[in-house]
Design a binder for these strands. Structure first.
Length: 390
DNA sequence: AAGCCGGGGCA
DNA sequence: TGCCCAGGCTT
């Protein structure tokens, strides 16, 4: 690696400086990096699945999901042939379930339009549902070995610090500048066996640096291969970059949910395929009613099940809070044990119905709060004495 | 441009 | 608590 003594700025990103950064990052990455399952082969399918899972999700979280997913769906044909329910079941707990729906739709598109072979064309890759600018760059550079840039949260932070850019990645001009920088830095794909200047390795090096060294708080600059050229470090306070994003208000929402039990089984409904928790299974859930819990439960049964049930016998369980990026949801669960039920017709927000034995959890797509609630049902703790829903 | 879309780890 | 995470889609 060549030492770089020039003052680094956008205008001084000369070819020698650029090459020095490339060389330092590539040799640092190749000297040692985390052993991640999706790095063991450059199969476009594996890279694609991993990159979708990695959207807004930590690598350590993805690791287990990826292995289970690849064991069940080893190739794009297997994924395309599976029902969406099975895909969502393996996605349960990972969040952003629209990713799973898009992944499944894209797999079917790859089979239908490209004969099951992953498209190589840049426009075709970018046109797949669920594949945006970042994921397209990742697939093209890592799996297809094309010269393609990428900017994720890690890269944005590394570049903002390296060049001391007071740019917010979530704003348009910040995005534009960071992407332009990334595109100037990413090396050309090697002609043949020459493994140097691999665009995929370079991009992974940038991300690895952001994930393990150039951390949001307390960056470990002493371990950084490019600390000598880092303007933020030269200024003495790398944490200033990128500037913090403005905090946002998170509205609170109250819900009641009904665990209808019969013969050791609990009723679950499947949500409509779009929107929050689309396609996932949950107990009938609805809004609270200012008139009281009985009215809320009665309305719930009427609107979501098309039935009347003895909701006055429902017992309140411990309420819990479920946090989302844009909502703070407070759930008040009720349990209602019945000997027999009238005919039930899923409607409203739901399109299907089934009974589940909570002690033998089936492979169903469920949100984390549903899994937690069913687990609590299986091994009950205690029932709330107070019946308060406000 | 802003809002919607999950869940978890960590200071 | 607040912040952030190998972002994308819709309006």
């Amino acid at each position: 690696m060549r030492p770089v003594t020039d003052t680094l700025s956008l205008s001084s990103l000369t070819p020698p400086v650029r090459d020095a950064i490339r060389g330092a990052l590539l040799s640092w990455f190749r000297a040692g990096h985390r052993d991640l399952p999706w790095r063991r082969s450059a199969d476009p399918y594996r890279v694609w699945v991993a990159e979708i899972m990695l959207q807004q999700t930590r690598t350590e979280t993805v690791r287990e999901y990826f292995d289970r997913f690849l064991a069940r769906f080893p190739d794009v044909a297997a994924l395309a042939a599976a029902p969406l329910d099975d895909v969502l079941a393996l996605w349960s707990g990972l969040g952003y379930y629209g990713r799973a729906r898009n992944l499944h739709a894209a797999a079917r598109e790859i089979v239908a339009r490209y004969g099951g072979r992953f498209p190589q064309d840049a426009e075709a890759v970018a046109a797949l549902p669920g594949v945006g600018p970042y994921t397209a760059g990742a697939i093209r550079s890592i799996a297809l070995r094309q010269r393609a840039a990428l900017v994720d949260g890690n890269v944005a932070r590394v570049l903002a610090r390296l060049f001391a850019l007071p740019l917010r990645p979530q704003e348009a001009d910040g995005r534009r500048a960071l992407w332009q920088l990334a595109e100037e830095l990413v090396p050309e794909a090697p002609e043949a066996a020459d493994a140097d200047n691999d665009p995929g390795d370079f991009n992974q090096a940038l991300m690895e640096l952001g994930a393990t060294v150039c951390l949001p708080q307390q960056p470990r600059c002493l371990l950084c291969p490019v600390s000598e050229v880092c303007l933020a470090r030269r200024q003495g306070d790398p944490e200033r970059y990128p500037p913090p994003r403005p905090p946002r208000q998170v509205p609170e929402v109250d819900r009641v949910t009904l665990l209808l039990c019969q013969g050791g089984q609990v009723l679950l409904l499947r949500r409509l395929p779009a929107g929050l928790w689309g396609g996932l299974w949950e107990p009938p859930t609805g809004e609270v009613d200012p008139r009281g819990p009985h009215q809320a439960l009665q309305r719930l049964c009427q609107e979501q099940l098309g039935a009347q049930l003895p909701v006055e016998r429902a017992q309140p369980l411990s309420p819990f809070v479920h946090l989302l990026t844009h909502r703070r949801m407070r759930f008040q669960p009720y349990r209602l044990e019945v000997a027999a039920v009238p005919p039930l017709h899923p409607q409203g927000e739901y399109d299907q119905l089934r009974w589940l034995d909570p002690s033998r959890p089936a492979a169903l797509g469920m949100s984390a709060w549903v899994s937690g609630l069913l687990g609590r049902l299986h091994t009950p703790r205690r029932v709330c004495d107070a019946e308060r829903t406000t």
